[in-house]
C-alpha cells in the first residue's frame, strides 16, 4: 500500500475521520463526498484498490482526502479491512472514526439538523464509544439497470424503495453482537437459503483506540464491549441507518466483473447464482415496498431509533 496524497498532517485533534476502501467508484464518489462533508466529516482517508475509471484522479484533487493505493488482493486483505486497520492505527487513535463503503450513506436521528459532532459529543457525554447503523438496501421501482443515475445526484432519488418489516435478528454470543439479516436481498435472492443472506448489522462509527480492530467488514469490532450498540432491557438505544445504494444501474455490469474476479465474501461459490440473477437485470420492487422519506419515517417504522437523544 503506497501513499498517493498524504494530507494527514492537517488532521486536528477532535476531527471526525472517514475511512473507506474503494474500487472504481467514480460514479458514486461525488455525492458520497458531499454527503459526508455536509454531515461534518473533517478528513477522508481512502485506500484505492486498483481503480481505472478516474476514481484516483477525483480523490487526488479533493483537498480533504488522503489517498493510498494498492493492487494487492482485496480478499486476502480481509476485504480491505487490514488496509484500513493499519490506517486507523496510525491516524484514528482518539478520533471518532467512520468506516463505510462507497455505497453506504449514513443517516442518524436529527442528521438533517444536527451535524455529526453533535452526535459524537453526545455519545462522549453519555459514555458510549460506538454507534450502530443497520444497512438498508435501496432499490428502484423497475428493473435495476433501467434506473439511470447521474454522478453527483442523490442516489435515493433514483432508488427510493426499501423493505421495512422483514428482518431477522439473532444474538451472536461469540462477539456479543446482533446478527441481522433479511430485507430485499433475503426476500428475492436468498428465499431458499436465508442463512446465507447478507449480514446487515454494522457498527460504522467508533471512538477509535489503537488497540481496537474490526473483525469482518464493520459488522463486528474488538473488544466485544463495542458491539453492544443495542439495549437488552426493553429500552431503545440510539441508532442510525446506512442507506445502501448497491443497486445502482451499474450493478448489472459490476456483477459481471465481480463474478469473474471472485474477490467478494467468504465463500465466492455461494454467490455465483446471486450474481447470475443480478446480471439478468431483475426487478426487486414489490407492492409492499416502502418509499424513503426521512429518518423520522424510518424511526416510526422501527428501523432506527433516537433512543434518549431528542
Amino acid at each position: 500500500m503506497k501513499p498517493v496524497v498524504d494530507r494527514t498532517s492537517a488532521i486536528e485533534p477532535g476531527a471526525i475521520l472517514l475511512f473507506a476502501c474503494v474500487r472504481n467508484e467514480a460514479v458514486r464518489l461525488p455525492y458520497f463526498l458531499s454527503h459526508y462533508r455536509k454531515l461534518g466529516v473533517d478528513h477522508f482517508l481512502i485506500v484505492d484498490n486498483g481503480s481505472d475509471d478516474g476514481t484516483v484522479e477525483q480523490l487526488r484533487a479533493a483537498p480533504d482526502v488522503s489517498l493510498w493505493q494498492t493492487t494487492a488482493s482485496y480478499k486476502k486483505a480481509r476485504f480491505g479491512i487490514d488496509w484500513l486497520t493499519w490506517l486507523m492505527l496510525r491516524h484514528g487513535h482518539d478520533h471518532w472514526c467512520l468506516t463505510v463503503d462507497a455505497d453506504e450513506l449514513l443517516i442518524y436521528p436529527h442528521h438533517d439538523t444536527r451535524p455529526l459532532p453533535a452526535l459524537t459529543d453526545w455519545l462522549d457525554r453519555s459514555g458510549v464509544p460506538s454507534f450502530g447503523a443497520m444497512m438498508l438496501d435501496l432499490y428502484p421501482k423497475g428493473r435495476l439497470g433501467d434506473a439511470h443515475y447521474e454522478p453527483g445526484q442523490n442516489p435515493v432519488e433514483v432508488m427510493p424503495w426499501f423493505d421495512r418489516g422483514n428482518y431477522t435478528i439473532r444474538l451472536q454470543p461469540r462477539h456479543g453482537n446482533l446478527w441481522i439479516q433479511g430485507g430485499v436481498r433475503a426476500r428475492v435472492f436468498f428465499d431458499t437459503s436465508p442463512r446465507r443472506a447478507p449480514t446487515l448489522n454494522k457498527i460504522p462509527l467508533v471512538r477509535w483506540n489503537r488497540r481496537y480492530c474490526y473483525v469482518t467488514s464493520t459488522h463486528y469490532v474488538l473488544p466485544y464491549a463495542l458491539n453492544t450498540v443495542y439495549a437488552t432491557d426493553g429500552g431503545e438505544a440510539t441508532s442510525g441507518i446506512l442507506l445502501h445504494t448497491k443497486f445502482l444501474d451499474t450493478i448489472v455490469e459490476k456483477s459481471k466483473e465481480e463474478k469473474s474476479r471472485r474477490e467478494h465474501f467468504e465463500n465466492s461459490d455461494l454467490y455465483e447464482t446471486y450474481y447470475d440473477r443480478l446480471i439478468a437485470n431483475p426487478t426487486l420492487w414489490c407492492a409492499q415496498s416502502s418509499r424513503f422519506v426521512s429518518w423520522r419515517q424510518l424511526e416510526g417504522m422501527g428501523l432506527m431509533s433516537r433512543g434518549g437523544w431528542t
Binding site: 435478528i169 444474538l171 429500552g235 438505544a237 422501527g302 428501523l303 432506527m304
Partner: peptide, 11 residues
Amino acid sequence: GRAGLQMQSRF
C-alpha cells in the same frame, strides 16, 4: 421502548 419491536438497537 416500543412494545413488540425488535430492531438493531432494541433486543
